[in-house]
Every structure is written in structure tokens, then in C-alpha cells.
Amino acid sequence: MKNTKEVVIEKSLFLIALSAIFMLFLIAIFIFKEGTPLIFKVGFKNFVTSSKWFPLEGQFGIFSMILGTLWITAGALIIGVPLGLSCAIFLSEFVPRRIMAILKPTIELLAGIPSVVYGFIGMVVLVPLIRENLGGPGLSILAGSIILGIMILPTIISISIDAIQAVPRSYREGSLAMGATKWQTIHMVVLKAARSGIVASIILGMGRAIGETMAVIMVAGNAVKIPRSILDPARTLTTNIALEMGFAAGDHRQALFATGVVLFIIIMILNIIANYAVRKR
């Protein structure tokens, strides 16, 4: 009797797990099925290297958006990683545990704020600030990077803190007992031991930055042209899909799915690079 029950539970868990993976596959297949015909039609090379995006005239080139995505994501990491890491180091090494126990959940709460709120704040505060002080339209790569840099902070901070706190106490004691200062101990031992966790936090943050759509739509300007400076507006791959899917049909609609395919490939490549970087030592 008990045995059949165990078997039923095991089998149903297996089915549920399988269906989750199955759905993932389904999504991937769907995107590829909808997107690839157009890529073949205009040619993959043309699709990713041309920056002429005139969907109504049948010209589909997403080069400027690929650049937009890479620029904004890189900018977000340049802002978010040093900030997030310093914050994680400070909180886990220099703040008493009791206070940490309050601060960490608070920071994690930041991840729960809807992205439209971040976008809104960026639009009413950050964009005018950039326009008045640095010139340009304000709606720009810089604005997008700053907002995304802030949005990925909770991910980077919270996962890095976990990684740093998981470093055995004996490593720290060993280092201090050799006459190392606290800071030497942190950067020569603790950060090295916590390295894979820290890189994981950066990969997750990067994933969030690449995928974020709403906040970027509101602050990055969305212009389809090759950005020349960080003060120029730019459109990313995700925002392209979100902005035009509502009214696209035919080839245009397929081109948006094709944009999704390229995004998919970019994320894959970045993940592989990041994983390789962790594995290497």
C-alpha cells in the first residue's frame, strides 16, 4: 500500500519536473519556428549587420539594437558590479551580524519593486538631470545603464554576501594568524574563495540587465540608430520586441521573433563565456 503511494508520488513529481523542462523547450522551439524563416529570407548576416530597420518597407536590420543591448548591459555592469561588490564586502565583513540580519532582507526587498517604478523614477529624476548637466536628450544609454545598474544591485549584493559568508572561518583565522591585516585577508583569501559565487551573482545580474524591458523603454530613448556616445538614445533587442509587437503583422511580426532568436543566442554566448571564466581556475 505504502509502496504504491511512493511510486505515484515519485512518478507525478517526475512528470511535473518534465513538464517544466518541456515548456522551456516549447518556448524555445516556438520562438525559433516563428523567427528563423525571416532570418533565412533576409539572410542572417544581413539581419544582424545592417542597421536599417524599416519594417513597413521590408528592411530588417537589427545591428543598432544589438549594439544598444550590449552598450546598456555593459554600462549596467560597470555601474552595478563595483557598487554591489563593495556593498557586499562591507556588509558581510564590517557590519555586525545583528545589523546585517536587518539590512540584507531590506536590500532583497529592492528586487521586488516593479521595474516600471524604476523606469518612472529614471524618467522624472535621472533623465532631466542628464539633459541639463551633460547635454543630449537625456533619454540615453547612460540613463538606461544607471537605472539597470541600480536594478541589478540586489541580485549582486545578496548572492555575493551569501558567497562571502560561506567562506570558512578557518581561512580568515589562518590569514590573520599570519599577520595579515583585515583588508589583506579579504582581498587575498576571502574574495578568492568566494569567487565562483561572486561570478554567479554577476551572471545573474547580467541576465536581469539584458532581459529588462520596461525600465529601459522609459529611459533609453528607443531611437533606431547606431549610438555614438553614451549620451545618445538607443534601442535594445527586448524593447524593440515590446514596442512593436502590438501592431506588427506578417514579416514584421516574424522579424520581431527573429530579434528574440538573436537575443537568445547572445544570452547563450554570454553565459558560456561567463561559465568558462569561472571554470578557469
Partner: peptide, 12 residues
Amino acid sequence: GMVFQRPNPFPL
């Protein structure tokens, strides 16, 4: 200097 109960070389 000090040697500990559980060997604690650094992960280097």
C-alpha cells in the same frame, strides 16, 4: 605564528 587543529591551507 599558529598552526590549527584542522589543516587550513588557503584555496590557492
